[in-house]
Structures are given as structure tokens and as C-alpha cells.
């Protein structure tokens, strides 16, 4: 058991170090995130002001928290459905993955989580600093910090585990680009990337909460902005864990089914 954990821990650290090699890319991402953040701030704060200082439970400070936390998480959340395994299924290298004495799904997720955790440093920290500079809201209760951090971690893992499902569609489809782009559009919108899910009209909010997307980004942000009290926060984390369990189980089942279906071309 301990040996197994050590393998995945090593994979996670390898992912972390791999991401640290792309410094200029991290800087580029930061510049883009900040620009988008400033534009989001202009229009969303104008909306809060137009609503009379409070909109669906968000005041100006909470809206700032939402904006800068979500921008800072962009480097770590996999909302575009792009995963390395899709490429490896297409060109057949996945056959080698299946020969290794590690679980294909767990190895892929561990590596990606490692990369995501590194991205929190160059892209998350400056965004939070930016938020603090413009006066973002912080939760009142001390319990919100550990809960929020845990919720954030679950959100990151959930986004990666769900993107993995998109990648392994390749066992059946081979070319997954079309599916991936559809996924990218839907996940960004339903995760509340540009507009918080709570501002959606009720029918649209109902559709969003029926998907795992709000559990990736919206719930951790709501906990860390202090928009959800401790009881609500515990509820949100429970929902996140349930989604994660479901998505991981689906990934296991589909990986096994896909392995039986897989046909490697060439030789």
C-alpha cells in the first residue's frame, strides 16, 4: 500500500517539476489572466452597482473575490478537456501505458494534479495579490480557510478527472477534437467562468447544478469569498466529493471497457 502511494506521489511531483520548466508560458498565462480579470471586473462591478450594491448575494468585495480567485485558478483547473492521454490513444502509445504496473487513470490524474499545483504559484498567487490590492472579501469564520483549501483541491482534482473522461472517449472515437471543443465551451460557461452561476436564471442554474462543473470552480470560490456559511460550505464540499467519486468510478469503468475495445494500428 505504502509502495503504491509512493509511486503516485512521485508521479505527482514529476508533474509539478515538469510544469515548472515552462516559465515564459506561465508569465504569458498570467498576463492574459490579469487582462481578462480587469475586463471582468469592470463589467461585473458595474452590474453589481446597477443592481444597487448587491446582486444575488454578491456585494462588490465578494464579486472581486470571485473574479480574482477564478482568474487565479484558471491555470490549475482543467476546463478545456485537453489531456495528454487523448494524444496517446490516437497514436497508440497508450498500449505502453497499459503494460506498466500502475493504474492508467490514477497515473494520469496524479501527473496532471502535480502540474496544476505548480500553476497555483505563478498564476494563482499574483491573482490573489491583485484581488487583495483591489479589496476582495475574505471569509469571516476561520473554518472557511481549511474548508476552502480542501474544496479547492477537490475542485482541481474533479476538473482533471472529468477532463480525463473526455480524453478516453478516444478509445471509441479516435479523434476527440470535436468533443473536446464542445466540452470546453460548456464547462467554462457552466462552471461560472465569466458569470457566477448564482446570477443565472433559475432554469439555467438548475441545468448547471445538474453537472459537475460548478463543483469545480464555483463552490470553492463561494466558500473562500465567505458567501457560504460553515454549514453550507460543508454541504458544498460533500457535493464535490460525491461528484468526484462518481467521475472517478466512471473513469475506471470506461478505461476498462476502452481497453477491451482498443485496437492499436501498425506494429
Amino acid at each position: 500500500m505504502r509502495a503504491t502511494i509512493r509511486v503516485y506521489w512521485r508521479l505527482l511531483r514529476a508533474g509539478f517539476r515538469r510544469q515548472s520548466a515552462y516559465r515564459l508560458a506561465a508569465l504569458g498565462g498570467l498576463v492574459a489572466n490579469t487582462t481578462f480579470g480587469l475586463l471582468k471586473m469592470a463589467v461585473l462591478l458595474a452590474t453589481v452597482r446597477a443592481a444597487g450594491g448587491e446582486l444575488a448575494g454578491y456585494d462588490t468585495a465578494m464579486m472581486s473575490t470571485y473574479i480574482w480567485l477564478s482568474q487565479g485558478l484558471l491555470g490549475s483547473m482543467n476546463l478545456d478537456g485537453r489531456v495528454d492521454i487523448a494524444e496517446r490513444i490516437k497514436d497508440g502509445r497508450v498500449a505502453v501505458d497499459f503494460l506498466r504496473p500502475v493504474d492508467v487513470q490514477a497515473a494520469e490524474i496524479a501527473t496532471e494534479v502535480g502540474r496544476a499545483l505548480f500553476s497555483l504559484l505563478p498564476r494563482g498567487v499574483p491573482a490573489v495579490a491583485m484581488g487583495l490590492a483591489v479589496g476582495m472579501a475574505l471569509p469571516e469564520s476561520a473554518a472557511a480557510y481549511p474548508l476552502g483549501a480542501f474544496s479547492l483541491l477537490i475542485g482541481i482534482v474533479l476538473s482533471i478527472a472529468t477532463a480525463y473522461l473526455v480524453g478516453i472517449c478516444g478509445f471509441w472515437l479516435v479523434e476527440t477534437r470535436g468533443v473536446q471543443i464542445c466540452y470546453m465551451v460548456l464547462s467554462g460557461f457552466l462552471a461560472g467562468l465569466f458569470v457566477p452561476v448564482r446570477i443565472f436564471p433559475p432554469w439555467l442554474a438548475a441545468i448547471a447544478t445538474a453537472t459537475p462543473f460548478p463543483a469545480m470552480m464555483m463552490y470553492p470560490v463561494d466558500i473562500l469569498a465567505g458567501r457560504a456559511n460553515t454549514t453550507e460550505a460543508l454541504g458544498l464540499v460533500a457535493v464535490q466529493c460525491a461528484w468526484l467519486a462518481g467521475v472517478v468510478a466512471a473513469g475506471q469503468a470506461l478505461t476498462r471497457a476502452g481497453r477491451r475495445h482498443l485496437e492499436i494500428q501498425g506494429g
Binding site: 463589467v43 461585473l44 452590474t47 446597477a50 443592481a51 446582486l55 444575488a56 477534437r177 470535436g178 468533443v179 471543443i181 464542445c182 470546453m184 465551451v185 460548456l186 467554462g188 460557461f189 465569466f194 458569470v195 446570477i199 443565472f200 436564471p201 439555467l204
Partner: peptide
């Protein structure tokens, strides 16, 4: 076909984001 659908969807989502905000105020 999927390419076409996703392109329309992209533009549609961008419009929907604006609509959601304007609908609220």
C-alpha cells in the same frame, strides 16, 4: 459537423454570458 456545432456554441455562450448579466439588472 462537430466543429460547426462547437463554433456556433462558442459564439452562443459568449452572447449568453452578456444576456445573463443584463437579465439580472
Amino acid at each position: 459537423a462537430l466543429d460547426l456545432v462547437s463554433s456556433v456554441l462558442t459564439a452562443f455562450a459568449e452572447l449568453a454570458e452578456i444576456w445573463v448579466l443584463y437579465r439580472a439588472v
